[in-house]
Simulated assay, not measured.
Amino acid sequence: MKISDVPFAILRLQYRAARLPLQIIEEQLVARLDAESSPRLIYERSLGALDITVGNVLGDQKIAERGAAIADRSEARLLAAELDAQADAEVREAGQNFKARRQSASQQRQNAQAAKEKTVKESRQQAEARKREAAQNAEERAASLGKRADKAATQRTAAVENAKRTENAQIDAMAKTAAKRADAQLKDAHEKRTEAASIRKDADRVAELADVEKEKRQQARAVEEN
């Protein structure tokens, strides 16, 4: 050993002695904390940075490498904790989006069903009223025509019946058109409900992937700690 190396050797011994209490704190107290807790990560990163600085200053590669290993391990745990938090947030967001869309689709389906029932009911009421009015008008016209000659009355009665059938056909067509519009609204609500079910499947897949990724990281950390 060169004479110039003696001061550094003494300083290295002094650092090892000074670091011993920190090592005891790490083994007896910090090691009991959760691997991803903030106090433990801060302590390990600070201790690793201290080892790196002192190792570089004193020219002790072992101390510097030990500090780098501690710092890298702490950084990996911090990254894992952040990834876990991000995965949990994505799962919660996906669940909230699915719940909102499912509620929206259910409400739209109920609204479409109510609108259809209302439209069909109103259309039937209008159709019945027009049929009664048409029948009454036909009877009045038939009564008026009955005062005329039998042949003319017969011809005009036939014309009234034909007009009645035509008007009833038009009324029925209007009712069918209204029912078709209501069916289209109900179909749209069903499609949105199907979309909500698809979103739920996607959310479940995101949750499963997040759980698998979290389990992999936990296994990796267990292997690293062992």
Rank of each mutant, 00 (worst) to 15 (best):
Q218C: 00
K216N: 06
A178H: 05
L209K: 11
K131L: 13
P21M: 05
G95E: 15
S37M: 09
D204F: 04
A87N: 12
R102W: 04
E161I: 10
A196L: 11
T177Y: 04
L20V: 02
L209C: 01
N168F: 06
A105Q: 12
N137G: 14
A112Q: 09
R181Q: 13
E44Q: 09
L13C: 07
Q219A: 15
A184W: 00
D60G: 05
E195I: 01
G95C: 10
A163K: 01
V6G: 03
R165A: 11
A222V: 05
K214H: 12
K121Q: 08
V54L: 11
A143V: 05
I70L: 07
G67Q: 02
A134N: 14
D211C: 01
D188G: 00
R132A: 13
T177F: 01
K131I: 12
A112L: 07
L33V: 05
A220T: 07
G48K: 04
L79I: 09
Q61I: 02
A182T: 09
K118Y: 13
R73A: 15
R66P: 00
E161N: 12
A158K: 14
N162L: 10
N56T: 14
D150H: 08
A127S: 10
Q96T: 12
Q23A: 12
V212R: 13
N137W: 10
V120N: 03
K2I: 06
T166I: 03
E36R: 14
Q110Y: 07
V57N: 06
R92A: 15
K164G: 04
E191K: 04
L186Q: 13
A169C: 02
G146S: 14
I70M: 05
L50T: 03
P7Q: 07
A169M: 04
R141F: 04
A115D: 14
S74P: 06
Q23E: 14
A18L: 12
I10D: 03
A100M: 12
R181V: 05
R141W: 05
Q113V: 11
L186G: 01
A69D: 08
R77S: 02
F98G: 08
D88P: 02
N111Y: 06
R40E: 06
N111A: 15
R165F: 02
I42Q: 12
E167I: 02
R109Q: 15
E167R: 04
A203S: 15
D84Q: 07
Y15P: 00
A169D: 10
E65L: 05
R132Y: 06
I70V: 11
